[in-house]
């Protein structure tokens, strides 16, 4: 897994791991947009560079084991990594890819990763991640899910 430093094109290896209590001291609404403290009861994951503790993105999902499906509920990259001035590329994609990895690890070929997009963003997720359209929900399963794992080197 790697992200790309926009200014230099340099690749940096990254880790996705569970957020620990200590992290919540630095996870502020101004930097990560949502109030992540309210999601503490769920599995919240952070993405960071291997050589740096600074959190570049956050995500939480719910695992619906009976459906062999993981639903991404919330995801945000840090303020410095949004829009044209972002420092790194591939943060959100790597986090979504990580959800795919977790789903495949548990459910094999029947694994599914879904999310309920804002209507105006739906087409963008479909274009960028080859997500499949199921009306209100979009999802990755089968070949598109395998492609995500390949593209994000998981």
């Amino acid at each position: 897994m790697f992200i790309i430093e926009k200014a230099t094109g340099k690749k940096h290896k990254v880790i996705v791991e569970p957020v620990i209590n200590e992290d919540y001291k630095t996870i502020t609404k101004s930097k990560y947009f949502f109030d992540w403290k309210t999601e503490k009861k769920y599995n919240v994951y952070k993405l960071r560079r291997r050589d740096n503790d600074s959190i570049l993105g956050l995500m939480f999902f719910i695992d619906y084991a009976e459906e062999k499906r993981i639903e991404i509920k919330l995801l945000a990259v840090s303020k410095d990594n949004r829009g044209v001035d972002k420092h790194y590329e591939r943060i959100a994609g790597t986090l979504i890819g990580f959800a795919c990895r977790e789903a495949l690890k548990h459910y094999g070929i029947e694994a599914c990763v879904s999310l309920v997009p804002k209507t105006e963003l739906k087409e963008h997720y479909i274009t960028k991640y080859e997500m499949l359209d199921a009306g209100k929900q979009i999802f990755l399963e089968g070949l598109p899910l395998l492609k995500m794992l390949n593209n994000y080197e998981l």
């Binding site: 990259v77 959100a92 309920v116 804002k118 963008h124 199921a134 209100k136």
Partner: peptide, 22 residues
């Protein structure tokens, strides 16, 4: 919209009926 999709998944609430259909 592209930049937003590249940075966020927002919390989206569906009604019970919408959720069932979806």
């Amino acid at each position: 919209a592209t930049e937003l999709a590249d940075s966020f998944v927002f919390r989206t609430k569906l009604t019970d009926k919408e959720k069932k259909e979806s």
